[in-house]
Write a protein that binds this DNA or RNA. Structure first.
Length: 575
DNA sequence: CAGTGAGCGAGCTTCCGCTTGACTT
Protein backbone atom coordinates (compact mmCIF):
# COMPACT_ATOMS: atom_id res chain seq x y z
CA UNK A 1 0.00 0.00 0.00
CA UNK A 2 1.13 3.56 -0.79
CA UNK A 3 -0.01 6.31 1.53
CA UNK A 4 -0.94 9.75 0.20
CA UNK A 5 -1.22 12.50 2.85
CA UNK A 6 -3.16 15.71 2.22
CA UNK A 7 -4.15 18.58 4.51
CA UNK A 8 -7.93 18.55 4.18
CA UNK A 9 -10.18 15.53 4.87
CA UNK A 10 -12.57 16.95 2.28
CA UNK A 11 -10.16 15.91 -0.46
CA UNK A 12 -9.40 12.34 0.59
CA UNK A 13 -12.41 10.53 -0.90
CA UNK A 14 -12.12 12.27 -4.25
CA UNK A 15 -8.40 11.62 -4.55
CA UNK A 16 -8.84 8.00 -3.52
CA UNK A 17 -11.37 7.64 -6.33
CA UNK A 18 -8.73 8.72 -8.83
CA UNK A 19 -6.09 6.33 -7.54
CA UNK A 20 -7.64 2.93 -7.07
CA UNK A 21 -6.94 0.07 -4.67
CA UNK A 22 -3.17 0.31 -4.18
CA UNK A 23 -3.48 3.62 -2.34
CA UNK A 24 -4.64 4.93 1.03
CA UNK A 25 -5.39 8.64 1.36
CA UNK A 26 -5.39 10.40 4.75
CA UNK A 27 -5.50 13.97 6.04
CA UNK A 28 -3.27 15.87 8.47
CA UNK A 29 -5.98 18.48 9.26
CA UNK A 30 -3.51 21.29 8.73
CA UNK A 31 -0.40 21.75 10.85
CA UNK A 32 0.63 18.88 13.13
CA UNK A 33 3.52 20.46 15.07
CA UNK A 34 4.29 23.97 16.25
CA UNK A 35 6.24 25.95 18.81
CA UNK A 36 4.68 25.23 22.22
CA UNK A 37 2.23 27.80 23.54
CA UNK A 38 3.66 27.55 27.08
CA UNK A 39 7.24 27.46 28.19
CA UNK A 40 8.68 30.67 26.83
CA UNK A 41 10.11 31.46 23.45
CA UNK A 42 11.05 27.84 22.65
CA UNK A 43 13.60 29.00 20.11
CA UNK A 44 17.30 28.82 20.91
CA UNK A 45 19.74 31.35 19.42
CA UNK A 46 23.36 30.17 19.67
CA UNK A 47 26.34 31.28 17.57
CA UNK A 48 24.15 32.21 14.61
CA UNK A 49 22.19 28.96 14.86
CA UNK A 50 18.42 29.07 15.33
CA UNK A 51 16.87 26.08 17.05
CA UNK A 52 13.08 26.01 17.27
CA UNK A 53 11.62 23.45 19.67
CA UNK A 54 8.59 21.98 17.94
CA UNK A 55 5.99 19.91 19.78
CA UNK A 56 3.04 17.91 18.40
CA UNK A 57 -0.14 19.97 18.44
CA UNK A 58 -2.66 18.77 20.98
CA UNK A 59 -5.48 19.16 18.46
CA UNK A 60 -3.60 17.02 15.94
CA UNK A 61 -3.15 13.98 18.19
CA UNK A 62 -5.88 11.95 16.46
CA UNK A 63 -4.56 12.77 12.99
CA UNK A 64 -0.99 11.97 14.05
CA UNK A 65 -2.10 8.62 15.50
CA UNK A 66 -3.92 7.75 12.28
CA UNK A 67 -1.06 8.82 10.03
CA UNK A 68 1.44 6.89 12.13
CA UNK A 69 -0.54 3.67 12.01
CA UNK A 70 -1.22 3.94 8.27
CA UNK A 71 2.43 4.77 7.62
CA UNK A 72 3.50 1.60 9.42
CA UNK A 73 1.65 -0.43 6.78
CA UNK A 74 2.76 1.67 3.80
CA UNK A 75 5.69 0.85 1.57
CA UNK A 76 5.82 4.43 0.28
CA UNK A 77 4.63 7.71 1.75
CA UNK A 78 3.66 10.59 -0.55
CA UNK A 79 3.20 13.98 1.08
CA UNK A 80 0.58 15.87 -0.94
CA UNK A 81 0.03 18.87 1.32
CA UNK A 82 -0.84 22.18 -0.35
CA UNK A 83 1.69 23.49 -2.90
CA UNK A 84 2.79 26.53 -0.92
CA UNK A 85 5.21 27.49 1.85
CA UNK A 86 3.01 26.35 4.72
CA UNK A 87 2.19 23.13 2.90
CA UNK A 88 5.87 22.36 2.39
CA UNK A 89 6.47 22.92 6.10
CA UNK A 90 3.54 20.67 7.04
CA UNK A 91 5.02 17.96 4.82
CA UNK A 92 8.39 18.34 6.52
CA UNK A 93 6.88 18.15 10.02
CA UNK A 94 4.94 15.01 9.08
CA UNK A 95 8.11 13.40 7.74
CA UNK A 96 9.88 14.32 10.98
CA UNK A 97 7.12 12.74 13.07
CA UNK A 98 6.97 9.60 10.95
CA UNK A 99 10.75 9.36 11.06
CA UNK A 100 10.94 7.81 7.62
CA UNK A 101 11.99 8.97 4.16
CA UNK A 102 8.96 10.45 2.40
CA UNK A 103 8.44 11.87 -1.04
CA UNK A 104 6.66 15.08 -1.92
CA UNK A 105 3.99 15.54 -4.57
CA UNK A 106 2.03 18.70 -5.36
CA UNK A 107 -1.55 18.64 -6.65
CA UNK A 108 -2.43 21.85 -8.48
CA UNK A 109 -6.02 20.73 -8.95
CA UNK A 110 -8.08 17.84 -7.65
CA UNK A 111 -8.80 16.27 -11.02
CA UNK A 112 -7.88 12.82 -12.25
CA UNK A 113 -5.33 14.18 -14.72
CA UNK A 114 -3.72 16.60 -12.28
CA UNK A 115 -3.48 14.01 -9.50
CA UNK A 116 -2.04 11.29 -11.72
CA UNK A 117 0.41 13.70 -13.34
CA UNK A 118 1.60 14.83 -9.90
CA UNK A 119 2.10 11.25 -8.68
CA UNK A 120 4.18 10.50 -11.77
CA UNK A 121 6.84 12.96 -10.64
CA UNK A 122 7.44 12.87 -6.92
CA UNK A 123 10.35 14.91 -5.55
CA UNK A 124 12.17 15.49 -2.27
CA UNK A 125 10.93 18.01 0.26
CA UNK A 126 12.19 21.47 -0.68
CA UNK A 127 14.24 22.37 2.38
CA UNK A 128 14.71 25.98 1.26
CA UNK A 129 10.95 26.45 1.16
CA UNK A 130 10.61 24.79 4.57
CA UNK A 131 13.30 27.12 5.93
CA UNK A 132 11.44 30.14 4.57
CA UNK A 133 8.42 28.98 6.56
CA UNK A 134 10.54 28.41 9.69
CA UNK A 135 11.91 31.92 9.32
CA UNK A 136 8.38 33.32 9.10
CA UNK A 137 7.23 31.26 12.07
CA UNK A 138 10.17 32.12 14.33
CA UNK A 139 10.07 35.82 13.46
CA UNK A 140 6.40 35.99 14.38
CA UNK A 141 7.14 34.22 17.66
CA UNK A 142 10.01 36.57 18.49
CA UNK A 143 7.91 39.67 17.84
CA UNK A 144 4.96 38.28 19.81
CA UNK A 145 6.96 37.08 22.79
CA UNK A 146 9.44 39.96 23.10
CA UNK A 147 7.10 42.85 22.41
CA UNK A 148 3.86 41.81 24.14
CA UNK A 149 5.43 42.00 27.64
CA UNK A 150 6.63 45.57 27.06
CA UNK A 151 3.02 46.68 26.51
CA UNK A 152 1.90 45.72 29.99
CA UNK A 153 3.18 48.94 31.45
CA UNK A 154 0.17 50.49 29.69
CA UNK A 155 -2.09 48.37 31.88
CA UNK A 156 -3.40 44.84 32.16
CA UNK A 157 -5.66 45.31 29.15
CA UNK A 158 -2.75 45.91 26.77
CA UNK A 159 -2.14 42.25 26.12
CA UNK A 160 -0.58 41.62 22.74
CA UNK A 161 1.50 42.81 19.82
CA UNK A 162 2.35 41.10 16.56
CA UNK A 163 3.42 41.63 12.97
CA UNK A 164 -0.18 41.37 11.74
CA UNK A 165 -2.52 42.41 14.56
CA UNK A 166 -0.55 45.51 15.52
CA UNK A 167 -0.49 46.81 11.95
CA UNK A 168 -4.22 46.09 11.59
CA UNK A 169 -4.76 48.08 14.80
CA UNK A 170 -2.44 50.84 13.60
CA UNK A 171 -4.46 51.27 10.39
CA UNK A 172 -7.61 51.81 12.45
CA UNK A 173 -5.81 54.05 14.96
CA UNK A 174 -4.18 56.19 12.27
CA UNK A 175 -7.55 56.64 10.58
CA UNK A 176 -9.09 57.66 13.90
CA UNK A 177 -6.39 60.30 14.36
CA UNK A 178 -6.97 61.60 10.82
CA UNK A 179 -10.66 61.96 11.63
CA UNK A 180 -9.89 63.72 14.93
CA UNK A 181 -7.55 66.14 13.15
CA UNK A 182 -9.94 66.78 10.27
CA UNK A 183 -11.19 70.31 9.74
CA UNK A 184 -14.35 70.56 7.70
CA UNK A 185 -14.39 73.19 4.96
CA UNK A 186 -17.71 74.50 3.71
CA UNK A 187 -17.55 75.74 0.15
CA UNK A 188 -19.63 76.38 -2.92
CA UNK A 189 -19.64 75.21 -6.47
CA UNK A 190 -21.80 76.44 -9.35
CA UNK A 191 -24.14 74.14 -11.23
CA UNK A 192 -25.40 75.22 -14.65
CA UNK A 193 -28.42 73.54 -16.23
CA UNK A 194 -28.85 73.47 -20.02
CA UNK A 195 -32.09 72.72 -21.82
CA UNK A 196 -30.54 70.31 -24.32
CA UNK A 197 -32.15 68.20 -25.52
CA UNK A 198 -31.42 66.15 -23.61
CA UNK A 199 -31.34 68.38 -20.55
CA UNK A 200 -28.01 68.20 -18.73
CA UNK A 201 -26.01 69.83 -15.94
CA UNK A 202 -22.43 71.08 -15.82
CA UNK A 203 -20.32 71.94 -12.77
CA UNK A 204 -17.83 74.80 -12.47
CA UNK A 205 -14.36 73.23 -12.41
CA UNK A 206 -11.99 76.12 -13.30
CA UNK A 207 -12.04 79.83 -12.54
CA UNK A 208 -9.53 82.37 -13.84
CA UNK A 209 -7.40 79.59 -15.30
CA UNK A 210 -7.03 77.68 -12.01
CA UNK A 211 -8.94 74.69 -10.65
CA UNK A 212 -11.90 75.98 -8.64
CA UNK A 213 -11.16 73.80 -5.63
CA UNK A 214 -12.75 75.01 -2.41
CA UNK A 215 -12.02 78.67 -2.87
CA UNK A 216 -15.61 79.98 -2.73
CA UNK A 217 -16.46 79.77 0.96
CA UNK A 218 -18.64 82.85 1.31
CA UNK A 219 -22.30 82.48 0.26
CA UNK A 220 -22.35 86.16 -0.76
CA UNK A 221 -19.46 85.57 -3.17
CA UNK A 222 -21.28 82.56 -4.59
CA UNK A 223 -24.37 84.70 -5.15
CA UNK A 224 -22.37 87.45 -6.86
CA UNK A 225 -20.56 84.96 -9.07
CA UNK A 226 -23.85 83.41 -10.17
CA UNK A 227 -25.29 86.83 -11.01
CA UNK A 228 -22.14 87.82 -12.91
CA UNK A 229 -21.98 84.56 -14.90
CA UNK A 230 -25.60 84.85 -15.96
CA UNK A 231 -24.78 88.09 -17.76
CA UNK A 232 -21.90 86.58 -19.74
CA UNK A 233 -21.57 84.85 -23.06
CA UNK A 234 -21.34 81.03 -22.94
CA UNK A 235 -19.67 78.84 -25.55
CA UNK A 236 -18.75 75.21 -26.00
CA UNK A 237 -15.01 74.95 -25.38
CA UNK A 238 -14.37 71.29 -26.09
CA UNK A 239 -16.38 68.15 -26.69
CA UNK A 240 -15.15 64.64 -26.84
CA UNK A 241 -16.73 61.23 -26.93
CA UNK A 242 -14.78 58.08 -26.11
CA UNK A 243 -15.80 54.49 -26.22
CA UNK A 244 -14.72 52.83 -23.00
CA UNK A 245 -14.54 49.07 -22.36
CA UNK A 246 -15.80 47.89 -18.97
CA UNK A 247 -14.06 44.63 -18.19
CA UNK A 248 -15.68 42.06 -15.93
CA UNK A 249 -14.39 41.75 -12.34
CA UNK A 250 -12.27 38.72 -11.40
CA UNK A 251 -13.87 35.78 -9.56
CA UNK A 252 -13.93 35.90 -5.77
CA UNK A 253 -11.07 35.27 -3.37
CA UNK A 254 -11.53 35.11 0.42
CA UNK A 255 -10.90 38.83 0.85
CA UNK A 256 -13.13 39.95 -2.03
CA UNK A 257 -16.06 37.67 -1.14
CA UNK A 258 -15.89 38.99 2.44
CA UNK A 259 -15.98 42.51 1.03
CA UNK A 260 -18.95 41.80 -1.25
CA UNK A 261 -20.88 39.93 1.46
CA UNK A 262 -20.31 42.85 3.83
CA UNK A 263 -21.51 45.52 1.41
CA UNK A 264 -24.32 43.59 -0.24
CA UNK A 265 -25.54 41.20 2.46
CA UNK A 266 -24.39 43.02 5.62
CA UNK A 267 -22.55 39.91 6.79
CA UNK A 268 -19.40 40.25 8.85
CA UNK A 269 -16.33 38.25 7.76
CA UNK A 270 -16.73 35.63 10.52
CA UNK A 271 -20.32 34.90 9.48
CA UNK A 272 -19.32 34.84 5.82
CA UNK A 273 -16.60 32.29 6.57
CA UNK A 274 -19.04 30.12 8.49
CA UNK A 275 -21.49 30.12 5.59
CA UNK A 276 -18.69 29.48 3.10
CA UNK A 277 -17.47 26.52 5.17
CA UNK A 278 -20.92 24.99 5.06
CA UNK A 279 -21.31 25.64 1.30
CA UNK A 280 -17.88 24.07 0.78
CA UNK A 281 -18.61 21.00 2.90
CA UNK A 282 -21.89 20.47 1.04
CA UNK A 283 -19.88 20.47 -2.19
CA UNK A 284 -21.50 23.60 -3.63
CA UNK A 285 -18.38 25.76 -3.91
CA UNK A 286 -14.63 25.36 -4.27
CA UNK A 287 -12.32 25.92 -1.32
CA UNK A 288 -13.00 29.22 0.38
CA UNK A 289 -9.61 30.13 1.89
CA UNK A 290 -7.76 31.31 -1.19
CA UNK A 291 -5.90 34.29 -2.58
CA UNK A 292 -5.99 33.09 -6.18
CA UNK A 293 -8.24 34.16 -9.06
CA UNK A 294 -7.13 31.18 -11.19
CA UNK A 295 -9.85 28.93 -12.66
CA UNK A 296 -9.77 25.36 -13.91
CA UNK A 297 -10.30 25.05 -17.68
CA UNK A 298 -13.25 22.69 -17.03
CA UNK A 299 -14.93 25.34 -14.87
CA UNK A 300 -14.42 28.02 -17.51
CA UNK A 301 -15.92 25.71 -20.14
CA UNK A 302 -18.95 25.13 -17.90
CA UNK A 303 -19.42 28.88 -17.41
CA UNK A 304 -19.16 29.51 -21.14
CA UNK A 305 -21.78 26.83 -21.82
CA UNK A 306 -24.23 28.48 -19.40
CA UNK A 307 -23.56 31.94 -20.86
CA UNK A 308 -24.13 30.60 -24.39
CA UNK A 309 -27.35 28.89 -23.26
CA UNK A 310 -28.86 31.84 -21.39
CA UNK A 311 -27.69 34.90 -23.31
CA UNK A 312 -27.34 36.15 -26.92
CA UNK A 313 -24.04 35.31 -28.66
CA UNK A 314 -22.55 38.79 -28.04
CA UNK A 315 -22.33 38.02 -24.32
CA UNK A 316 -19.88 35.16 -24.85
CA UNK A 317 -16.31 36.34 -25.52
CA UNK A 318 -14.47 34.60 -28.35
CA UNK A 319 -11.80 33.44 -25.89
CA UNK A 320 -12.07 32.63 -22.17
CA UNK A 321 -11.36 35.66 -19.98
CA UNK A 322 -8.04 35.38 -18.16
CA UNK A 323 -7.86 37.33 -14.91
CA UNK A 324 -4.41 38.42 -13.84
CA UNK A 325 -3.25 37.91 -10.29
CA UNK A 326 -3.48 41.34 -8.66
CA UNK A 327 -1.89 40.21 -5.44
CA UNK A 328 1.86 39.69 -5.74
CA UNK A 329 1.93 37.87 -2.40
CA UNK A 330 -0.57 35.26 -3.52
CA UNK A 331 0.60 31.74 -2.84
CA UNK A 332 -1.80 30.18 -5.35
CA UNK A 333 -2.31 26.86 -3.58
CA UNK A 334 -6.02 26.86 -4.50
CA UNK A 335 -8.16 28.34 -7.23
CA UNK A 336 -10.71 31.13 -6.98
CA UNK A 337 -13.99 30.70 -5.08
CA UNK A 338 -16.68 29.53 -7.53
CA UNK A 339 -19.68 27.18 -7.75
CA UNK A 340 -18.68 23.56 -8.35
CA UNK A 341 -21.82 22.53 -10.23
CA UNK A 342 -23.14 25.35 -12.37
CA UNK A 343 -25.78 23.18 -13.98
CA UNK A 344 -27.41 22.34 -10.64
CA UNK A 345 -29.48 24.74 -8.56
CA UNK A 346 -28.75 23.78 -4.92
CA UNK A 347 -31.68 23.98 -2.53
CA UNK A 348 -30.51 26.59 -0.04
CA UNK A 349 -32.19 29.09 2.20
CA UNK A 350 -31.50 32.35 4.01
CA UNK A 351 -28.10 33.97 3.99
CA UNK A 352 -26.52 30.82 2.59
CA UNK A 353 -28.65 31.14 -0.55
CA UNK A 354 -27.82 34.84 -0.89
CA UNK A 355 -24.11 34.21 -0.56
CA UNK A 356 -24.23 31.36 -3.06
CA UNK A 357 -26.07 33.59 -5.55
CA UNK A 358 -23.37 36.24 -5.14
CA UNK A 359 -20.62 33.70 -5.88
CA UNK A 360 -22.58 32.17 -8.75
CA UNK A 361 -23.22 35.51 -10.47
CA UNK A 362 -19.70 36.77 -9.95
CA UNK A 363 -18.29 33.62 -11.49
CA UNK A 364 -20.51 33.81 -14.57
CA UNK A 365 -19.84 37.55 -14.89
CA UNK A 366 -16.09 37.00 -14.84
CA UNK A 367 -16.36 34.97 -18.07
CA UNK A 368 -18.80 37.28 -19.87
CA UNK A 369 -18.05 39.90 -22.51
CA UNK A 370 -16.88 43.37 -21.46
CA UNK A 371 -19.45 46.16 -21.47
CA UNK A 372 -19.00 49.19 -23.73
CA UNK A 373 -19.90 52.76 -22.77
CA UNK A 374 -19.84 55.97 -24.77
CA UNK A 375 -18.42 58.58 -22.39
CA UNK A 376 -19.02 62.19 -23.46
CA UNK A 377 -17.23 65.14 -21.87
CA UNK A 378 -18.29 68.72 -22.55
CA UNK A 379 -16.27 71.75 -21.44
CA UNK A 380 -18.29 74.95 -21.55
CA UNK A 381 -16.73 78.39 -21.20
CA UNK A 382 -18.43 81.19 -19.35
CA UNK A 383 -17.07 84.58 -20.52
CA UNK A 384 -14.72 82.88 -23.05
CA UNK A 385 -12.14 85.68 -23.35
CA UNK A 386 -12.50 87.59 -20.09
CA UNK A 387 -9.43 86.24 -18.27
CA UNK A 388 -6.06 86.93 -19.96
CA UNK A 389 -7.68 86.08 -23.29
CA UNK A 390 -9.06 82.81 -21.95
CA UNK A 391 -12.31 81.82 -20.29
CA UNK A 392 -13.19 83.15 -16.87
CA UNK A 393 -15.04 79.99 -15.92
CA UNK A 394 -15.04 76.46 -17.26
CA UNK A 395 -18.05 74.23 -16.58
CA UNK A 396 -17.81 70.53 -17.25
CA UNK A 397 -20.51 67.94 -17.97
CA UNK A 398 -20.02 64.20 -18.23
CA UNK A 399 -22.44 61.79 -19.81
CA UNK A 400 -22.43 58.04 -20.19
CA UNK A 401 -24.45 55.99 -22.65
CA UNK A 402 -24.35 52.25 -22.26
CA UNK A 403 -23.71 50.84 -25.73
CA UNK A 404 -23.55 47.25 -24.52
CA UNK A 405 -24.13 46.05 -20.96
CA UNK A 406 -22.10 42.83 -21.29
CA UNK A 407 -21.44 41.13 -17.94
CA UNK A 408 -23.35 43.93 -16.21
CA UNK A 409 -26.53 42.29 -17.47
CA UNK A 410 -26.34 40.03 -14.42
CA UNK A 411 -27.23 43.03 -12.27
CA UNK A 412 -25.62 45.05 -9.56
CA UNK A 413 -25.31 42.09 -7.17
CA UNK A 414 -22.22 40.72 -8.83
CA UNK A 415 -20.58 44.12 -9.10
CA UNK A 416 -21.19 45.72 -5.73
CA UNK A 417 -17.81 44.86 -4.30
CA UNK A 418 -15.96 46.33 -7.26
CA UNK A 419 -17.39 49.79 -6.74
CA UNK A 420 -15.22 52.40 -5.12
CA UNK A 421 -16.90 53.76 -2.00
CA UNK A 422 -16.49 57.39 -2.88
CA UNK A 423 -15.50 59.64 -5.72
CA UNK A 424 -17.06 60.39 -9.03
CA UNK A 425 -16.48 56.88 -10.37
CA UNK A 426 -18.96 55.44 -7.90
CA UNK A 427 -21.62 54.71 -10.48
CA UNK A 428 -19.29 53.72 -13.30
CA UNK A 429 -20.31 50.08 -13.14
CA UNK A 430 -24.03 50.71 -12.96
CA UNK A 431 -25.48 49.99 -16.39
CA UNK A 432 -27.64 53.12 -16.47
CA UNK A 433 -27.29 55.82 -19.08
CA UNK A 434 -26.94 59.56 -18.61
CA UNK A 435 -26.99 60.95 -22.15
CA UNK A 436 -25.23 64.13 -23.18
CA UNK A 437 -25.39 65.91 -26.57
CA UNK A 438 -22.13 66.11 -28.50
CA UNK A 439 -22.15 69.87 -29.19
CA UNK A 440 -19.94 71.66 -31.72
CA UNK A 441 -16.97 73.46 -30.10
CA UNK A 442 -17.35 77.22 -30.44
CA UNK A 443 -21.13 77.13 -30.61
CA UNK A 444 -23.01 79.45 -28.30
CA UNK A 445 -25.45 78.33 -25.66
CA UNK A 446 -26.89 79.66 -22.44
CA UNK A 447 -27.90 78.02 -19.21
CA UNK A 448 -31.56 77.74 -18.33
CA UNK A 449 -30.55 77.83 -14.67
CA UNK A 450 -27.44 78.58 -12.62
CA UNK A 451 -27.22 78.01 -8.89
CA UNK A 452 -24.63 77.90 -6.15
CA UNK A 453 -24.47 74.53 -4.46
CA UNK A 454 -23.23 74.20 -0.89
CA UNK A 455 -20.64 71.47 -0.37
CA UNK A 456 -18.41 70.38 2.49
CA UNK A 457 -15.18 68.41 2.63
CA UNK A 458 -15.59 65.07 4.37
CA UNK A 459 -13.27 63.26 6.77
CA UNK A 460 -11.92 59.90 5.55
CA UNK A 461 -14.35 57.07 6.35
CA UNK A 462 -13.74 54.59 9.15
CA UNK A 463 -12.91 51.03 8.15
CA UNK A 464 -15.42 48.23 8.33
CA UNK A 465 -14.10 44.74 9.10
CA UNK A 466 -14.33 43.93 5.40
CA UNK A 467 -12.66 47.11 4.16
CA UNK A 468 -9.86 46.68 6.71
CA UNK A 469 -9.31 43.14 5.42
CA UNK A 470 -9.24 44.53 1.87
CA UNK A 471 -6.58 47.01 2.96
CA UNK A 472 -4.55 44.30 4.73
CA UNK A 473 -4.71 42.11 1.63
CA UNK A 474 -3.59 45.00 -0.57
CA UNK A 475 -0.60 45.46 1.75
CA UNK A 476 0.12 41.72 1.71
CA UNK A 477 -0.53 41.45 5.47
CA UNK A 478 -2.26 38.34 6.83
CA UNK A 479 -3.55 35.31 4.94
CA UNK A 480 -6.98 34.11 3.82
CA UNK A 481 -7.18 31.65 6.71
CA UNK A 482 -6.54 34.42 9.25
CA UNK A 483 -8.40 37.53 8.12
CA UNK A 484 -11.50 36.85 10.21
CA UNK A 485 -9.37 35.83 13.21
CA UNK A 486 -7.41 39.11 13.08
CA UNK A 487 -10.69 41.04 13.37
CA UNK A 488 -11.71 38.86 16.31
CA UNK A 489 -8.47 39.60 18.19
CA UNK A 490 -8.59 43.39 17.91
CA UNK A 491 -12.33 43.46 18.69
CA UNK A 492 -12.41 40.97 21.59
CA UNK A 493 -9.46 42.60 23.32
CA UNK A 494 -11.17 45.97 22.96
CA UNK A 495 -8.35 47.59 21.03
CA UNK A 496 -11.11 48.49 18.59
CA UNK A 497 -14.89 48.76 18.90
CA UNK A 498 -17.51 48.30 16.23
CA UNK A 499 -20.34 50.79 15.91
CA UNK A 500 -22.83 50.49 13.08
CA UNK A 501 -20.29 48.17 11.44
CA UNK A 502 -17.60 50.86 11.52
CA UNK A 503 -14.35 50.20 13.39
CA UNK A 504 -13.12 52.76 15.86
CA UNK A 505 -9.87 52.57 17.86
CA UNK A 506 -10.40 52.77 21.62
CA UNK A 507 -8.23 54.80 24.02
CA UNK A 508 -6.42 51.53 24.72
CA UNK A 509 -5.84 50.87 21.03
CA UNK A 510 -4.62 54.42 20.43
CA UNK A 511 -2.17 54.34 23.33
CA UNK A 512 -0.86 50.89 22.33
CA UNK A 513 -0.29 52.13 18.79
CA UNK A 514 1.51 55.26 20.02
CA UNK A 515 3.74 53.13 22.23
CA UNK A 516 4.61 50.66 19.46
CA UNK A 517 5.21 53.35 16.85
CA UNK A 518 7.48 55.18 19.28
CA UNK A 519 9.56 52.17 20.29
CA UNK A 520 9.48 50.00 17.16
CA UNK A 521 9.75 52.54 14.35
CA UNK A 522 11.20 50.91 11.24
CA UNK A 523 10.33 47.42 12.51
CA UNK A 524 7.23 45.18 12.52
CA UNK A 525 4.85 48.07 13.23
CA UNK A 526 5.44 49.56 9.77
CA UNK A 527 2.87 48.96 7.04
CA UNK A 528 5.48 47.70 4.56
CA UNK A 529 7.30 45.40 7.01
CA UNK A 530 5.49 42.27 5.83
CA UNK A 531 6.19 43.07 2.19
CA UNK A 532 9.90 43.42 2.95
CA UNK A 533 9.81 40.23 5.01
CA UNK A 534 8.16 38.34 2.16
CA UNK A 535 10.89 39.47 -0.24
CA UNK A 536 13.52 38.17 2.16
CA UNK A 537 11.59 34.89 2.56
CA UNK A 538 11.45 34.49 -1.22
CA UNK A 539 15.22 34.81 -1.24
CA UNK A 540 15.43 32.09 1.42
CA UNK A 541 13.07 29.91 -0.63
CA UNK A 542 15.30 30.33 -3.69
CA UNK A 543 18.27 29.18 -1.63
CA UNK A 544 20.00 32.55 -1.87
CA UNK A 545 19.78 33.64 1.78
CA UNK A 546 20.33 31.37 4.81
CA UNK A 547 17.26 31.52 7.03
CA UNK A 548 19.14 31.42 10.31
CA UNK A 549 21.14 34.56 9.57
CA UNK A 550 18.01 36.39 8.47
CA UNK A 551 16.12 35.43 11.62
CA UNK A 552 19.07 36.10 13.95
CA UNK A 553 19.55 39.63 12.61
CA UNK A 554 15.84 40.44 12.76
CA UNK A 555 15.48 38.94 16.24
CA UNK A 556 18.36 40.98 17.66
CA UNK A 557 16.88 44.11 16.11
CA UNK A 558 13.57 43.46 17.87
CA UNK A 559 15.39 42.55 21.09
CA UNK A 560 17.28 45.84 21.26
CA UNK A 561 14.12 47.84 20.68
CA UNK A 562 12.12 45.74 23.15
CA UNK A 563 14.79 46.24 25.83
CA UNK A 564 14.73 49.98 25.21
CA UNK A 565 10.94 49.75 25.62
CA UNK A 566 11.34 48.09 29.03
CA UNK A 567 11.82 44.38 28.37
CA UNK A 568 13.81 42.73 31.16
CA UNK A 569 16.40 40.07 30.43
CA UNK A 570 17.28 38.48 27.11
CA UNK A 571 14.85 35.74 26.04
CA UNK A 572 16.97 34.99 22.97
CA UNK A 573 19.74 33.67 25.24
CA UNK A 574 17.73 32.48 28.23
CA UNK A 575 15.18 30.64 26.10
C1' DC B 1 5.13 45.05 67.93
C1' DA B 2 2.98 46.61 63.66
C1' DG B 3 3.64 48.12 59.30
C1' DT B 4 6.52 48.69 55.14
C1' DG B 5 9.39 47.42 51.45
C1' DA B 6 13.01 44.89 49.00
C1' DG B 7 13.94 40.69 46.88
C1' DC B 8 12.75 36.36 45.11
C1' DG B 9 10.26 32.89 42.69
C1' DA B 10 6.24 30.91 40.60
C1' DG B 11 2.65 31.32 37.38
C1' DC B 12 0.43 33.38 33.58
C1' DT B 13 0.36 35.52 29.03
C1' DT B 14 1.66 36.68 24.39
C1' DC B 15 2.74 35.45 18.09
C1' DC B 16 0.96 33.70 12.90
C1' DG B 17 -0.87 30.14 9.99
C1' DC B 18 -2.88 25.51 8.46
C1' DT B 19 -7.12 22.53 8.97
C1' DT B 20 -12.06 20.85 11.08
C1' DG B 21 -14.70 18.32 14.58
C1' DA B 22 -15.94 17.30 19.36
C1' DC B 23 -17.38 19.43 22.90
C1' DT B 24 -21.19 22.30 25.69
C1' DT B 25 -25.11 25.63 25.76
Amino acid sequence: MRLVIVESPNKTAKIKGFLGPGYQVAASFGHVRDLPINGGLAVGFHDGRVEPRYVPLEKASRAIAQLTSLAAKAEEILLATDPDREGEAIAWHIAQILGRPCRRVAFHAITKNAVQAALAKPRDIDQHLVDAQQARRVLDRVVGWLVSPTLRRLGKEAKSAGRVQSVALRLVADREREIQAFNKVDYFTLIATFAGPPKFQAELIRWKGEPLGQRITDPAIAEKTVAWCLKQEWRVLAAKRLEVAKNPPPPFTTATVQQAASVKLKLDPAMTMKLLQSLFEAGHITYHRTDSVALEPEAIAAARAIIARDHPPAYLPAQPVVHGQKNANAQEAHEAIRPTHLEEQPALGGAEADLYRLIHDRFLACQMAPGRDAVTTLDIACAPTAHAGGPMGVFQAKGVVVLFDGWRKLGADATEEAKPKKGKNADEDAPTSKPLPLLEPGSALSPSDLTGKRKATKPPPRYTQASLIKKLEAEGIGRPSTYAAIMKVILERAYVIEEKRMLQATELGLSMTDFLVHHFAGDFIERDYTRRMEEALDSVARGETPWEGLVTRAAHGVLAKAQAAGLRGNPLVDG
